[in-house]
Design a binder for these strands. Structure first.
Length: 509
RNA sequence: GGCUCGUUGGUCAAUCGGUUAAGACGCCUCCCUUUCACGGAGGAAUGACGAGUUCGACUCUCGUACGGGCUACCA
């Protein structure tokens, strides 16, 4: 039995980190923290040809942004390091060979072409995808079908080979899944998975078991897409003699796209929402994928929405901090059915978080965003005031650019079309008079502006209501934003007058 | 095709045999607001189908249908 709880996630550094990945990390993390255990990150770079250092860095950046930092550094290594699989390469072979010695695995010399041929040859209507397993293995080139001497010859000649697990003919392999209960498989239906590749690197199947054992992993949570290869892993634990230390398994429900299929990059492109935690630039494929962070999501909201996809506390609470999630997370409340991702709801979470956070807490993110938009920032004090005025109107962080932009510079476009239908000479007169009055106004604050505005309106026998919308459009460029007098008071006398004059000019033409 | 997991409103979902089947997102109506939001009140909308067990089934069992996943020297 394991004395301490250790959970791990093993991302493959070949692409971005998508929703499903972060959600799996999150659940691992929550479970570990809730139970006083450790969360480990292992870099699953079993395929060296696809290993990319930037991708590894990217994963770490994502976790840092989300606040889900592992307890032991995957790059530096921890108690059971190294944690990068390529650096562990020498450790795997002995176990594969042990399995061969025990008769649980065998050498296979088939070339990729021969495998292709086999798949073509045995392909039938009833069986469109034949596998390398108990039905076919004796017809292939391996140490089970070949004579001992022939095997030795191939080996000594250095003919490339892989090591495959030998699935028993008729056995039932059951595993106890913490979410699904007992799941059973007939070994005859499972194929002889490759354990050690021709280049000497282990496949996920071998690496997973060896690493989890060596690193004393007590609980293994992963996506449901792994359920069908679970019997291979269970058998490996058994054959290697580590059965008593096998971790507790849990296969997490999949996150689906709007069409009901497993969420993928394709969905993001098709429906226009992010799939990855952060921007991911795949230079090899020349593909760029926008991330939740850059789309304007707060990490708190991102974590929050992910946690509620496939899990819920059974109460009506929907907004959670990471700490609250840790406190309330319970594996038994994780669903077994997949959950469709709904971008509208995701935005709602972000909106809630923007409202929940104080202007001061929002300040760094908003400042950075506005600076990137080329805005020269005022004092922090003024920034906080601005954020306070507009934050309830922002669903995404990026909304601050439009919602607060007019505080820094005159609107680029004025929605004068919405004004034209009701625009007349009386209103022109009113605004001209307003300008004159503002020019001599020494008390530039909200209340006096409103008083002056209403007095002049009354003098011109106009209703203030008819004039406030034009005034607003002049100041912000459209029909949105906080109170007009708040805005006027904030941007100051000269700027207010300039904006009125500018729009008056536009409407004259 | 085989194996396997699943199925409560459009979506996320509560219910762990007895409820008028919660709540949230989205949608609609109204109030608040001389803008847009926020906020408040309300509305439409759900147990895939068929058997069985039971006094009673959304809940348990079986079957059917439908959907997902896997079926690589990728993870």
């Amino acid at each position: 039995m394991h004395s301490t709880i250790r959970v791990r996630f093993a991302p493959s550094p070949t692409g971005g980190l998508h929703l499903g990945g972060v959600r799996t990390i999150l659940f691992n993390y929550l479970f570990a923290k809730k139970n006083g255990g450790q969360f480990i990150l292992r870099i699953e770079d079993t395929d060296q040809t696809r290993y990319v250092a930037e991708a590894e860095q990217y994963i770490q950046d994502c976790l840092e942004w989300c606040g889900l930092l592992p307890d032991e550094s995957p790059t530096v290594g921890g108690a059971y390091g190294p944690y990068r699989q390529s650096e562990r390469k020498p450790m795997y072979r002995q176990y594969a060979e042990k399995l061969i010695a025990q008769g649980n695995a065998y050498f296979a010399f088939d070339t990729p072409e021969e495998l292709d041929t086999m798949r073509q040859e045995y392909k039938t209507q009833e069986n469109p995808s034949p596998t390398y397993g108990h039905e076919t293995r004796m017809k292939m080139k391996n140490s089970l079908s070949l004579a001992e001497a022939e095997v030795q010859r191939l080996l000594s000649e250095g003919v490339p080979y892989v090591i495959r697990i030998k699935m028993p003919d008729e056995e039932t392999v059951s595993l106890n899944d913490a979410i699904r209960g007992t799941v059973s498989f007939q070994t005859s239906q499972v194929d002889d998975k490759v354990l050690l590749k021709a280049d000497g690197m282990p496949t996920y199947h071998l690496a997973l078991v060896v690493d989890d054992y060596l690193m004393k992993i007590s609980h293994a949570f992963r996506g449901e897409e792994w359920l069908s290869s679970a019997p291979v892993h269970v058998l490996l634990w058994k054959y290697l003699g580590w059965e008593t230390e096998m971790p507790v398994w849990a296969h997490l429900p999949l996150i689906m796209g709007p069409d009901g299929a497993k969420l993928s990059k394709r969905h993001g492109n098709k429906y226009g929402f992010p799939i990855f935690a952060m921007n991911w630039n795949d230079e090899k494929k020349n593909e760029f994928t926008e991330g939740f962070r850059e789309k304007g999501f707060l990490p708190q909201a991102f974590i929050n929405l992910l946690a509620l996809l496939g899990w819920n506390p059974g109460t009506e609470q929907e907004i959670f901090t990471l700490e609250e999630l840790i406190g309330q997370f319970d594996l038994s409340r994780v669903h077994s059915a997949g959950a469709q991702f709904d971008f509208d709801k995701a935005k709602w979470y972000n909106h809630e978080w923007i409202k929940k956070l104080s202007a001061t807490e929002l300040l760094p993110d908003v400042s950075l965003l506005l600076e990137k938009a080329g805005i020269l920032l005022p004092s922090e004090e003024r920034m906080v005031q601005i954020i306070e005025m507009v934050k309830d109107r922002c669903t995404l962080l990026s909304d601050f650019e439009i919602q607060a932009g007019y505080f820094f510079k005159a609107p680029q476009t004025i929605d004068s079309d919405s004004l034209k239908p009701k625009w007349d000479e009386k209103k022109v007169l009113f605004f001209s008079e307003l300008i004159r009055s503002f020019e001599v106004n020494n008390f530039w604050e909200k209340e006096s502006l409103e008083t002056v505005f209403k007095e002049i309106a009354a003098a011109n026998t106009l209703k203030p209501g008819e004039l406030m919308l034009p005034f607003r459009v002049m100041l912000v460029g459209g029909k949105f934003g906080p109170g007009v007098f708040d805005i006027a008071a904030f941007i100051g006398k000269e700027e207010t007058i300039a904006r009125i004059k500018h729009t008056l000019g536009l409407l004259n033409i």
